[in-house]
């Protein structure tokens, strides 16, 4: 028999797993990874994975991570758009390592990482 605590554990885990099954709304914090052919060639798939893995690790529930088509700046791929508190930031040439830093410093820490922004 599952105890109430065990059920709570399942609940926490499933909540974390299904966090992306929300409906994207403009007010929520969201991360959009540009994933067209150019982005994928430049490594966007692993960036997307890194975002999902890190938010899962930190149990961040109300962050939506979505993908989008090409934004036009193919040489800057992988491009990532982060919207937090209504402010949209565009990051260029993102790697999985940089993705982890974005989660920790921008999403959790609230500080935009200037060096990742294409000047």
């Amino acid at each position: 028999m599952k105890t109430l605590n065990e059920l709570q554990e399942i609940r926490k885990q499933v909540k974390n797993q299904v966090a992306n099954r929300g409906i994207v709304s403009n007010s929520a914090t969201n991360i959009v990874v540009s994933m067209d052919t150019c982005g994928i060639n430049a490594g966007a798939k692993n960036v997307l994975k890194a975002f999902n893995a890190e938010t899962y690790r930190l149990n961040l529930l109300d962050i939506i991570i979505a993908q989008s088509g090409c934004g036009g700046d193919c040489k800057l791929e992988p491009v990532v758009y982060v919207t937090k508190d209504g402010v949209k930031t565009t990051y260029a040439n993102i790697t999985p390592e940089k993705a982890v830093r974005i989660i920790n410093e921008h999403i959790v820490g609230g500080k935009i990482i200037k060096e990742f922004i294409n000047a």
């Binding site: 797993q17 299904v18 966090a19 099954r21 999902n52 893995a53 938010t55 899962y56």
Partner: peptide
């Protein structure tokens, strides 16, 4: 693991 997309049928 968190999956990046959920397809609901």
């Amino acid at each position: 693991m968190r999956q990046h997309s959920h397809v609901l049928v």
